[in-house]
Design a protein around this nucleic acid. Structure first.
Lengths: 158, 158
DNA sequence: CTCACTATGTATAATTT
DNA sequence: TAAATTATACATAGTGA
């Protein structure tokens, strides 16, 4: 049985997508439950899918309301301040990602050669010889950073 | 290196708990992001921890608000109805769990012998010879069912 | 469609730095 | 205390009933 690494993109096939949805939704629920139990914290998740009439919520409607009460007490301004303070942190994360790539390049023992280019936050770089696994991880990290910056801008723009 | 299977309970050691929290929180964020991407849906998570000043939310405050808007449109009564309708489903899940245990018992090739007893929803049963892995999984399934029933009662009681 | 199986990829507990 | 590494446990994609 040969199975390719999952491509992190919208699953076009309807039945395959639904199957994945069901499996991963259960896995997510399990993870949240474990995090709450292991660390003694409150956590909740809400998922809106076309497979259910209403949004699905964990751990329960009342639990979610309890958690959300704290969130709503945070004003828009406070949220923005918090995110602004994260800017330095975000830059550090990107620099760290770049360092990881350099290390991967240095230690690379893989057969395949790929080319990745990115240029963000004045940290343009070219990386070669990174195997697919590490490349995907890096892409994810960078993507998260960029998304987070976009969100910050979006909120501050209001 | 021998490592015991993680016991799903509050981690007493402070630094270990914090380390686990950080790792699992990142993992959870990743899982949510993947679910959204793969299935093209909206999902969010909120975590309240002592390690952060404010609740941590994904994918973003605005994203969460969008998802929550749908949730708040659901009245308390509608939520209750939905949960009532799930009663049959829950019973089926418990019966299924019992069947799984029976099968495990039948096919059991493990060395250890443990004893699990439970009696819920008039489906009392005694199971033996289940290895730890399967036993934990079963316990989780049953626990989820019981929690879900409790929540339903709690909500309907209001 | 749903369920069960299992090979494989991923997350993470324990350990080292 | 935090970051990197590694061994192991867990989640899940693909498959078949």
């Amino acid at each position: 049985m040969t199975r390719n690494k999952v491509k992190l993109a919208f699953i076009l096939n309807d039945s395959a997508r639904k199957a994945t949805y069901k499996k991963r939704k259960m896995g997510l629920l399990k993870k949240i439950d474990q995090l709450s139990t292991l660390c003694g914290i409150e956590a909740c998740a809400i998922v809106c899918s076309p497979y259910e009439h209403q949004p699905e919520i964990w751990p329960s409607p009342s639990g979610v309301q309890k958690v959300l009460a704290k969130f709503w007490n945070m004003s828009e301004l406070e949220q923005s301040k918090k995110m602004l303070n994260q800017e330095t942190f975000l830059k550090q994360r990107i620099l760290k990602a770049i360092e990881q790539v350099k290390k991967l390049k240095r230690e690379n023992k893989e057969k395949e050669m790929t080319l990745l280019m990115f240029d963000c936050l004045n940290a343009g770089n070219i990386v070669t010889n990174v195997n697919n696994f590490d490349l995907n991880d890096l892409a994810w990290i960078i993507d998260q950073n960029l998304k987070e910056i976009d969100r910050k801008k979006e909120i501050l723009g209001n």
